[in-house]
Amino acid sequence: MGSVRLYAAVAAGSFRRYATYRAATAAGVFTNTVFGLILVYTYLALWDERPQLGGYDQAQAVTYVWLGQALFATLALQGGGFEAELMERIRTGAVAIDLYRPADLQLWWFAADLGRSFFQLLGRGVIPFAFGALVFPSALPSDPWLWLRFLLALLLAMVVSFGIRFLVALSGFWLLDGTGALQLLMVSGMFCTGMALPLNAFPEPLGGIVRALPWSAMLQMPADLLMGETGALRTYAFQAGWAVVLLVLGRMVQVAATRRVVVQGG
């Protein structure tokens, strides 16, 4: 039970740490709102041209945009979570300290990332989302249970997001310069999560492929769940499946990386 308390403390500390960046948070809210505005108008024009594109009506398309802006920082959709920091620790060798800590590397960073996610959901997500829902037509459910089911999907999305970024960060053990990997994370985040265009509006067969990838567990599936386009069980099964695969993969890479550090003598 002691270890649960440890990781809870790590998460809480991370939450508080992000809470101290007040100006950065305010700036982020502003940026997400501006980008949301631009995208909403673009989508409205797109759905004007092609009603029912991807099975969404206009209100759903708008809601999708604001959901994306709200979750942009929460799920670090284009990076910006712990991964750059961990990579830097790997590069400078400080990660050796982490490895000798009586805490698990993966769990430690997961707890920290979860704390960050929760802060950014509240600090950066709520305001743009509320702004969007008030100013534009929206397709939000009134059923509180559906909101609860959505929140659970969000939690699973956080796990999947962490799983992907943990792998990216660990690539630092083998790559000299992490810039490329982080850029790759950004690009994949832009396309495969559906930040650029909802994945169900992609042309086939590309759409089928991206919807099967883990990125679609982050924004697309929770959005579909909230707007009643898909069921909770299907969503959870997909998300949990990828979460397990990514976490196990992360664990295996971590073991290999640890061995490497030990062989190199720290």
Partner: peptide, 30 residues
Amino acid sequence: SFAMTLVSGLLVTGLDFVAILLMFSRVDAL
């Protein structure tokens, strides 16, 4: 490292326009 960031930079900015191409794969005009 410079060559790598140059190439990946081209890729990233290039994909930026792909987002527009994706939209136009579904509509003829915006």
